[in-house]
Simulated scan of single mutants.
Amino acid sequence: MAKVLVLYYSSYGHIEQMADAVAEGARSAGADVDIRRVPETAPQAVVEAAHFKTDTAHAEIESVDKLAEYDAIVIGAPTRFGRMPSQMASFLDQAGGLWYSGALVGKVGGAFTSTASQHGGQETTLFSILTNLLHFGMTIVGLDYGYQGQMGVKEVHGGTPYGASTLADGDGSRQPSDVDLGGARHQGKRIAEAAAKLAG
């Protein structure tokens, strides 16, 4: 049984919903799944003024060293000007020891994201996360085109071959759709299946 970590940062709850869906998909493939969030680094005044969502069912991850305990790590974060937000970057920046020791080499990695608009930097944000995972020596699993939900243009939806995604609109009013959540589940399942094969 593969052990999978879904690690995320979410300001308004969109990525948190996607994290739950990724975890659901991984569990459907028989994985043992933990969902953890990275610490909030924005000042409390900013958190309150921006009305960040602070009530969550998921605990913070204890330390970056915990990453080495998993067969697969799926990282979710919203975009900040076409890249991952500082909260996630700050956490991953602490992983130098894991990189140096090769503790994550051969593990499976993936990413998912959200943006305000359809062209708001989903793919560049995913690549900013995946670049870290590749430097750690991880095997990347994206959202393959076996998930047909990401095809077509009849409705607004997320989904890229590099990872599941959703759109929040500029005011955060749009919630992840069934298509978006389906993509997250599909990717989670694929990641868990790949991790089980590599671990076995």
Rank of each mutant, 00 (worst) to 15 (best):
S101N: 08
E155F: 01
P161N: 08
V156G: 05
R36H: 04
E24L: 10
I129A: 10
G106Q: 03
V108M: 02
L198D: 06
A168Y: 00
G137Q: 06
L181F: 05
E60H: 02
Q175H: 07
K53C: 07
G146S: 11
D144A: 14
Q44D: 07
G149F: 03
T56G: 06
Q17M: 15
G110A: 12
S117V: 11
V179R: 13
A184D: 05
A26S: 13
A26R: 13
A42K: 04
G137D: 01
D178S: 12
H135N: 15
Y162W: 14
M88W: 05
D144R: 12
S114M: 03
Y9M: 00
H135E: 15
T79E: 02
I140Q: 07
H186P: 09
H135L: 14
Q44A: 11
V153P: 05
D144K: 12
G158F: 01
H51N: 09
K189I: 08
T56R: 04
V105G: 05
V64W: 00
Q94S: 14
A184R: 12
M151P: 10
M151L: 15
V179T: 14
Y12T: 15
A23R: 11
G82V: 03
T124L: 01
Y12I: 12
E60W: 02
G106A: 05
Y9V: 03
G170I: 13
A116D: 14
A26F: 01
T125K: 02
G106W: 00
R174L: 09
Y145H: 15
H157W: 04
A49G: 01
I15W: 08
R37P: 07
R80K: 10
K3W: 08
L98G: 09
G200V: 04
A77L: 05
E62G: 06
S28C: 02
R185S: 13
D178T: 12
G182Q: 05
G146D: 08
T56A: 06
D144L: 10
Q122M: 10
G106V: 01
S173G: 09
